[in-house]
Design a protein around this nucleic acid. Structure first.
Length: 484
RNA sequence: GGCGGCGUAGCCAAGUGGUAAGGCAAGGGUCUGCAAAACCUUUAUACGGCAGUUCGAACCUGCCCGCCGCCUCCA
């Protein structure tokens, strides 16, 4: 590989080239979901961001071991089961299916492994026992708590001072912890709740410990990258790091990466605010006249740097769509010319593809990467017009760029002819006219045009436009129809 | 109160000390019977404000203003 990517490491606050434990290999753990509800657009962004990291590393030539967990034991799951009179198993299997369906819709590449918390209870118990043995945890009324002050680096990751956290911490007198900051590794069994046997008493795992158990087991005591949403930085990742390093005595993770939030019309998206969009419903009942697609959502999220907040609005999504449409139009033009001249894609690491990868290697600067795509489009489009004469290296460079973009961004994969002219991923539901009907009308319009009856021709075109089809006159034959 | 982030054209958004990318929208033009698409062209003496460092700052430092997030479950 010719490029070493760098990332803004939350731990150090600096943009650093990744230092992998093994040359050419990357081990990465990303927090997946707790399966108590359908995923919303915040999950979509996070998964698209880390899918893009994964895809970039693969394209750069790294061998990636990508672990994305599923947390299937948790207070919220128990509550949901109780409230809806279903078993925990029913709840978790429902939402695991829903999660997978969403990931497929978003064209997220599957991780190398997808561990489920309930299958790692032995590892959690073992880890907790180690922490007790080493004096980093204590038992209180059947629960086990992590002793935060026994781990001197606590607060380092989220850049919090223990003293400040302590003053801000809510006093939870009823829990009887030594320190308000101490957090539960194991919660003592309660009536009507699931529990598991452990040497320190029956109960169930606290939040955080499952991720340590799964990551340490799947990736080893130290690994390269740990990612997730910014909201996980504290306390989840801080606690995860503390308990892992306290147990192993080794550096847990080298590079921590966190993505920013999704807001809707400038308000934080939260279930409590009633403004969270489920991924599934966003796809199914699009707020637009066009169905939402994976490519559309991906380019939308990738238009903003992964750490910046991104606001979803009809306008911002519309911009992304227009940008993607123009890229598909370019792809049609480029591939036509390249095919007729027998041009093949150029090398990965030079030309626009090389510049694209270089931009991504700098803390995943997807906005600059997208600029390179558009600049390539803008510089080549004039030459792709009839009479133009683009050079072979321009064409092969652009072809390679498109391949690289498809691989890493997961856009421009739907054949552009289908994208632009109304089939494929865009679907043809809720259209007033079928494609066949529209084509019949186009032929009538052509007859009218041939007879110089432009009034009638324009009338037909207006009717088609109202039905959602736009005509693009084609010098060589029948006009083509484009979904608008 | 503590910690962190952000503030760049009508909107979105890059920029990590060397003289403001890109997208969307808008105006003008080429092409077209007219459109659409494509192409050409126009649109920030300017980067929240005030100081400072520097030959030089949107980028560094300080202060101020405004917005947001985290500190409690959360991608």
């Amino acid at each position: 590989m010719f490029l070493t990517p760098s990332f803004l490491n939350s731990l150090t606050g600096k943009n650093e080239p990744i230092k992998t434990l093994e040359p050419g290999k990357v081990s990465m753990y990303v927090c997946g979901v707790t399966v108590y509800d359908d995923c919303h657009l915040g999950h979509a962004r996070s998964q698209i961001v880390f899918d893009t990291v994964n895809r970039m590393l693969l394209t750069l030539g790294y061998q990636v071991r990508y672990v994305r967990n599923i947390t299937d034991i948790d207070d919220k799951i128990i509550k949901k089961a109780h409230d809806s009179n279903r078993t925990i198993g029913e709840i978790t299997s429902t939402y695991i299916d829903s999660f997978h369906s969403d990931m497929n819709r978003l064209k997220i590449l599957p991780p190398s492994v997808e561990p489920r918390a309930t299958l790692y209870l032995d590892h959690m118990i073992e880890l907790i026992q180690t922490l007790i043995d080493k004096g980093h945890a204590y038992i209180k009324d059947g629960s086990v708590y992590f002793r935060v002050r026994s781990y001197s680096a606590y607060g380092e990751l989220s850049h919090q001072q223990i003293a400040e956290l302590r003053s801000g911490a809510r006093v939870e007198s009823d829990e009887g912890k030594e320190d308000p900051l101490d957090f539960a590794l194991w919660k003592a069994v309660k009536e009507g709740e699931p529990s598991y046997d452990a040497p320190f008493g029956a109960g169930r795992p606290g939040w955080h410990i499952e991720c340590s158990a799964m990551s340490l087991h799947e990736l080893g005591e130290s690994f390269d990258i740990h990612g997730g949403g910014l909201d996980l930085l504290f306390p989840h990742h801080e606690n995860e790091r503390a308990q892992s390093e306290a147990a192993t005595g080794k550096t847990f993770v080298t590079t921590w990466i966190h993505n920013g939030f999704v807001t809707i019309n400038d308000a934080k998206m939260a279930k409590s605010l009633g403004n969270s969009f489920r991924i599934a419903s966003f796809f199914e009942t699009s707020p637009f006249k066009d169905p939402v697609t994976a490519e559309w959502l991906r380019i939308f999220f990738l238009s903003t740097h992964y750490r910046s907040p991104v606001d979803i609005s009809e306008e911002s999504l519309g911009h992304a769509k227009a940008s993607l449409d123009s890229l598909h139009e370019f792809q049609i033009r480029l591939e036509k010319v390249a095919k007729s001249r027998g041009i093949v894609p150029g090398p990965l690491f030079s030309g626009p593809s090389g510049r694209f990868l270089k931009a991504l290697s700098n803390d995943m600067d997807t906005a600059v990467a997208l600029r390179i795509l558009h600049e390539t489009k803008t510089s080549l489009n004039p030459m792709l017009d009839a009479g133009g004469d683009p050079s072979e290296s321009d064409l092969s460079g652009a072809l390679r760029l498109l391949l690289t973009v498809r691989e890493i961004f997961g856009i421009l994969e739907v054949p552009s002819e289908e994208w632009v002219f109304g089939k494929g991923e865009k679907g043809s539901s809720n259209m007033a006219l079928s494609v066949a009907e529209a084509e019949a009308m186009i032929r009538k319009r052509e007859e009218a045009r041939a007879a110089k009856n432009f009034q009638k021709a324009d009338e037909i075109r207006d009717r088609l436009r109202q039905a959602g089809y736009e005509l693009m006159d084609n010098p060589g034959g029948l006009p083509r129809i484009r979904r608008i």
